[in-house]
Design a protein around this nucleic acid. Structure first.
Lengths: 209, 209
DNA sequence: TGCGAATGCGACGCTACCGTAGCGGAGTGA
DNA sequence: TCACTCCGCTACGGTAGCGTCGCATTCGCA
């Protein structure tokens, strides 16, 4: 399936540039379609047209609609970095920022919601969704663990609870309130939860404040 | 449209029991279809079959698919009571409990997610969704205001923030974690946020504890 | 320049669903 | 009982999307 190009020669990294181009264009187009029109608009016809690619070409790279949907969503999963500014607050803002901006916009929010909705009755999508969530969470957990080791947080801190609180606020704001997850919100949100979880006063607010 | 039966006679409440039965059966079936298969499975064919009703009958009560979808979702919106136990904690648990149980189950969770996904690119659904959310929020706001008047919460309490925190936790647990919003979770969640928001010690935990 | 692979194009049959229509039967209320 | 309303059934034309196929064309690479 996906390793067709990798098995035909001794150099597995060599991929026909046409293939690379086509796949990239299609996946980008698929994400756009999903974002703007939701699952209902996600037809191979629409994707092909947007990608300026023949519909038959899609079947040369993905076995069916489901396959393309899954891979499209998987592309837009991680969205988290692993900054190391030496200060938990700034690490969190740097890590969550891009992802928050992403799902704070209506189109991408629609895409993630479509995925969550699909996951509710499709084990394949649900498993992938679970995997992506854990992936993002792992990044944040690393940041928090480092801060804990530095003594920025009390020794008995419930890390999982902290991560839940952090994610809950962002998710609620994006999905329910429908407001942008911008820098100002994020800073306030992070500060609030650092306070709640007993971070020292010097760990909260803009650095040096 | 909907007031056909109401305008034909002097007694506006009288509705042909056959109509009442049919509408109820269809709306229930529609909710089931939406919950189990998501938006993709929400065809009039499927709804009619599940409701054990002729497809043509649907067109006698709803103008089109969209109409039926909106009314189906609107039926399952409020889900909030207005208990008055005299204690905020118990009020909140009583009010959120049924709704939490509803969206904690996979099928109904799927239904709400489908609606949210649709709302992301359909103004009609978005408006309705917004209305339902505010409706639920208003119930909770009333409880909190009462508690504030009773002195259960500090005078300067940020009520909207409290409501956000409450909703955020529930939404995150149901939609992202995918865990049931049961009584045990809810009690812990409410207690945590009452503590955070500075409620007196006697306002937290099981009554009398 | 020439070979092979990837793509474009158009067509095919198939399925599912939409929205409409008309007729006969059955339930409802006076 | 009788008129009226609602419903089941069947069929229709139309649209949209799926997945497949064969052939011509273009592109990448040696």
């Amino acid at each position: 399936m996906a390793e067709d190009a990798a098995t035909d020669a001794a150099s597995p990294d060599r991929v026909d540039p046409r293939v690379r181009r086509t796949r990239a264009a299609v996946l980008a187009a698929a994400a756009e379609v999903l974002a703007s029109g939701g699952l209902g608009a996600f037809s191979l016809e629409a994707v092909a047209q947007r990608a300026e690619v023949a519909r038959s070409t899609l079947y040369r790279h993905w076995s069916d609609r489901e396959q393309l949907l899954v891979e499209t969503v998987a592309e837009h999963g991680p969205m988290a970095e692993d900054p190391d500014t030496g200060r938990l607050r700034d690490d969190l803002i740097a890590a969550v920022g891009p992802f928050g901006a992403f799902l704070g916009e209506a189109p991408s929010r629609g895409m993630l919601l479509s995925m969550l909705a699909e996951a509710a009755h499709d084990p394949t999508v649900a498993a992938m969704q679970q995997r992506l969530t854990e992936q993002r969470r792992a990044v944040l957990r690393r940041l928090v663990d480092r801060a804990l080791a530095r003594g920025e947080l009390p020794a008995g801190t419930d890390v999982e609870q902290l991560l839940d609180d952090l994610a809950a606020g962002v998710v609620h704001r994006a999905f329910v309130v429908g407001a942008p997850v911008d820098a100002a919100y994020l800073a306030g949100h992070v500060d609030r939860f650092l306070t709640i979880h007993g971070a020292g006063a010097d760990a909260i607010g803009p650095r040096g404040a």
